[in-house]
Design a protein around this nucleic acid. Sequence first.
DNA 1: TGCGTGGTCAATAATTTATGCTTCGACGCA
DNA 2: TGCGTCGAAGCATAAATTATTGACCACGCA
Lengths: 293, 293
Amino acid sequence: MEARPSTMSPLLKIRAERDQMSAIERRIADFLLEEAHLLRDYSSQQLANALKISQSSVVKFSQKLGFKGYPDLKYSIGEAIARGDGADGNGGNGGGGEPVGEDAHSALAENLWYIKTRAEQETRLINPSTGIDAIAGVIGKAGKVFMIGLGEDGIPARAFAMRLSMLDILTVHHFDTVLMTASIATATKNDVLLVFSEHGQQTNLCKISRQFRERQGNVISVTRHSANPLRAHADHSLLVSAHDERAHIEPLIYQSALRHLLDMIFVLLCESGKGRLGQLESNLDRIRNLMEP
Amino acid sequence: MEARPSTMSPLLKIRAERDQMSAIERRIADFLLEEAHLLRDYSSQQLANALKISQSSVVKFSQKLGFKGYPDLKYSIGEAIARGDGADGNGGNGGGGEPVGEDAHSALAENLWYIKTRAEQETRLINPSTGIDAIAGVIGKAGKVFMIGLGEDGIPARAFAMRLSMLDILTVHHFDTVLMTASIATATKNDVLLVFSEHGQQTNLCKISRQFRERQGNVISVTRHSANPLRAHADHSLLVSAHDERAHIEPLIYQSALRHLLDMIFVLLCESGKGRLGQLESNLDRIRNLMEP
DNA sequence: TGCGTGGTCAATAATTTATGCTTCGACGCA
DNA sequence: TGCGTCGAAGCATAAATTATTGACCACGCA
């Protein structure tokens, strides 16, 4: 049993999991995020009353998050508030110790980076390290790696595909379900399919995943941390948590957090020995030769 | 009755009152002052056992100090510890930075993020905000925006192109110098060309830039912060600073810093009024419609 | 010695939390 | 469409924790 949700702010964790929650759980989560400071005088029963739900739901909520029970959650949130963590949006710069930028641009840049940092932390929390290892292992041992991502999801897919190619991992990348359907006809047991889809709702991608699994391939989904059919069809899944109320900001931080996750896996692959780094070096050399002279 | 012992740290209060306490109370006080961090997993009964006293003494102790009861005291001490208050005497980690992650993965992830953060800061420093404004202005007013980037440089180019399209900015993106050469035949005065090239050494890209300028277009180079020919041929330039001795890491942070820079520009464009956000919204809606039903 | 006071504890009442069981609704699959 | 499975929510209740009560003891003082 996991003793406690790491040393990280429980509020961060709650935000991270929020998407994957049921309606009632979300009610609790929102209350905690908004009104955390009121929690001190709330018993689980009172909290349940305030939200018009049953007391047991509150307890189960706490346990699902990895706390021993409601009092443990409450205690932990108390700590977080005292620390100035989370909750207030971007408020008192609590953690980083960065000096505040003097001009508008610096402020904007810092703020954006701060949000990205939070998303990265949330994302880290929801991807168990055993899962990441497993995924790195599967990719490292794969025969062929197939990748697909539509629209904006195609970008990280392509970036990751390039990276893998540099490690001499045979990678096939498509922007297109039709081409991909054709490609996976050649898939066999040791192959891997990475499916990128922020919301995981495309039925076409689900179909492709199913076909791929019928051929004994390993499917890895890469989606937002929400319940979604794509994830359900996958052997492994990578999850991303990234939130901002502004619709034009959210995609930026989604991509940033995802990128970091993939970077992690790339680094793990690089450092998994087996001369990966040597392969990378020689590929870089060849590219340099091609470009410069 | 005093609802709560003011806002003063409970540990201070305990120390203050310690001298006027009975022997047993003093036992409790000392334990709390010394071992406050253990309190989290102690119920009033357990604490009593540990001190070989009765549970009711613990409760009465709490109430005497002005707390509603034992849980209230416990909560309050939890806050105090989180705040770094009193107790530990030597001030521990000075109150600054983040706690170090517990497992290898967290450490790796945090370290990588730290390096990215540094690169972002460096990058911010070398791009004058006037330059960024100018570039955002040029793009915002452009007729067509052309983009090119070869190999890995194609990825941020493509990502940025997608973003601009969402703002109803007409964008043409190529991975290929040949196609690009053809495309820019249509370029005119208000058009913009963004050239992505980490090292800025490709002569083909320089040529394209030159041709583009001959047609009165605006050329923006996106390169590393080094003296390079591409930059020399551009009207504006975006610069990226990203360093790491490990060859497999450096590209990651280069991309990250670059991405952030482009994100900044995107946000500036979004917030430059003129109904940009509205356009973005409606584009997002249309995409959602296309994907889901 | 006898009395009042303050402190402690064991027993128990009250409250709070955790769990088992049941029902309900969503979803995948045939 | 219908069926089976699964998870989520609530109710009832068991378990635990916490708060209170009253008895007992030690001590100071008249």
